[in-house]
């Protein structure tokens, strides 16, 4: 496909079959990673643009999360009969992590359709908008981490077992790339995906133990494993809060990630060249 190492770049395009598709997809990924500086700039400008002209700028992200954590902390702490020193650190961590998950999935369906003008101006790797979206959501997440830090600081807590981040962060990172690619392609082809995704997320926000602790229910806890968001949330949150995460959750999260990558890779190999036709 594209070979920019040699002196003259060569662009050679023809319909691909079998292994040719895999190679073309890998080339696309490589080209996307080479444009990482562009993806970083685009992702950061996305955030800056949204808050340009406002007094606080991107710190609105931090502030609105802080307000949400405070309000929900008081309301649900009262409803669940939990004291704030125990509930608030848990809630701040959960809300910020869930915010990242829902941000990624909500934006994913429009990842390609929103980049139409980029696609039509010149050839870009299809993975570029995907990386841009990961960057944008990671930056948003970093703004929100401040809230967690403040809450933990107020209650003199320190994240426990932070070694687990060495495993859970890469899983989160890789999973977000795969899910954006997967939902993005479906969303470019079927325009119903975006509203479907936001409805699903809304339901799972309440079904998944985000604002309530998993030990609040005694019957049917094993069914929580069927919740696709529970393992991934728990492997990040559990160790930081200092409770032991069952190994079945780690296995579930890793299996999920592998499935996600398998699906996304298969679809991407097959449909990569069609994306510009769809948008």
């Amino acid at each position: 496909m594209e070979d920019s190492n040699s002196r003259t770049p060569i662009l050679d395009l023809a319909p691909q079959r079998g292994f040719g598709r895999v190679r073309a997809a890998l080339d696309d990924l490589k080209a996307g990673l080479r444009l990482l500086p562009l993806a970083l700039a685009l992702g950061w400008l996305d955030i800056k643009l949204r808050y340009r002209g406002s007094i606080l700028g991107p710190f609105w992200l931090t502030l609105s999360t802080a307000i949400m954590v405070a309000a929900m902390g008081v309301v649900y702490g009262y409803l669940f009969h939990m004291d704030l020193p125990h509930y608030l650190p848990f809630l701040s961590l959960s809300i910020v992590l869930w915010g990242y998950i829902s941000g990624v999935i909500n934006d994913a369906a429009t990842v390609f359709t929103q980049s139409t003008s980029l696609f039509h101006a010149r050839r870009i790797p299809a993975t570029l908008p995907v990386i841009r979206l990961v960057v944008r959501n990671v930056l948003t997440f970093l703004h929100n981490v401040v809230v967690i830090a403040v809450v933990f600081g107020v209650y003199h807590l320190w994240p426990k077992q932070s070694w687990s981040l060495l495993v859970s962060l890469p899983i989160w990172f890789l999973d977000s790339f795969a899910i954006i690619l997967l939902i993005g392609m479906l969303g470019a082809r079927f325009r119903d995906i975006a509203p479907i995704m936001s409805s699903i997320l809304q339901i799972f926000f309440f079904v998944t133990p985000v604002i309530w602790k998993p030990d609040l229910i005694y019957v049917g806890r094993q069914y929580l494993l069927l919740d696709p968001f529970y393992p991934i949330l728990e492997i990040m949150r559990g160790p930081l809060m200092g409770y032991d995460v069952r190994s079945s959750l780690w296995i579930a999260a890793i299996v999920q990630g592998a499935l996600l990558w398998g699906l996304a890779a298969a679809l991407f190999c097959r449909m990569r060249a069609r994306i510009p036709y769809w948008i």
């Binding site: 319909p15 510009p276 036709y277």
Partner: peptide, 25 residues
């Protein structure tokens, strides 16, 4: 290279400049 061929082949040798989209993206 924006649309990949459905049939046949396109091969370009050389650095490429495009003035296609009025807004240039």
């Amino acid at each position: 290279g924006i649309y990949e061929p459905v049939g046949g082949r396109v091969r370009l040798e050389g650095s490429l400049g495009t003035l296609l989209d009025a807004g240039l993206g």
